[in-house]
Amino acid sequence: MDNDRWLWTLGQELARHQLGPDAVRHVVAEAAAHLRDSGQPALRAFGTPEGYAAAVAESLAARYGRPARPAPGRVRLSARGITKRYRRRTILRSVDLTVRAGEVAAVVGANGAGKSTFLRICAGLLTPDAGEVMLDGRLGYCPQDAGTYDFLLPDEQFVLIGAGRGLDRERSKQIGRAGAAALQWRPAAGVQTRHLSGGTRQKLNLVMASMGEPDVLLLDEPYQGFDRGTYLDFWQHVWRWRDEGRAVVVVTHLLSQLDQVDQVLDLTPASEGAAA
């Protein structure tokens, strides 16, 4: 990796750690000055850009850390006593979840624990056998897969979703492309969705869900196939949506981010049968 490339990556990584543009510019410029003065290769002087960015972010934590969060607002989504059976098997047993504006809830549980089912019930796409979901505001829903048309271009999918939200074509494309860029993706002209990689398709899926400024975002493991950087970007988006006062529900089986969410709903039965 040459020094220019290293410095560019550093900038990206610093932005991922939510440093402001000024802070990013200063850190990158200082590193560049050091490299020029010392004549050293960047990797030797600073290590990997990811590692150095993390060290810088940690050093600056108090000053440039996430801005003070607004207090959680009103209840945006409230699911009460949700019970769902498939045939004789009870998937969900009296599950409750309340998410306020400016909160992130993680839904975890083993495969088959009913995470996606619960999210579909929250989205109003499935009728629970018992219980009720109350929604306040506009909903954005990112299904786990199959949320896109194979033969349409990403731009066309943006237009399709945008039209539903009452946006005109240009505005829809603009919003969609901006969302894509924020996930390090620039849709190539004329490439149909079926030719995108799994991770890129998930980005498309996620961008579509967040169009139209939803108040409540329901995200069903939308980061499968993401590389590590994009995965971090995804969580940056989650924090940003939260700080903008949206209510976010993320289905996940990865536990690494759980210490940072406001609540965790574990759908794994306490012990099969004894949970009743």
Binding site: A123, G140, Y141, P143, L160, I161, G164, M208
Partner: peptide, 8 residues
């Protein structure tokens, strides 16, 4: 379903 939730 997703289109339905996106305002259609």
């Amino acid at each position: 379903p997703r289109l339905r939730l996106s305002g259609y």
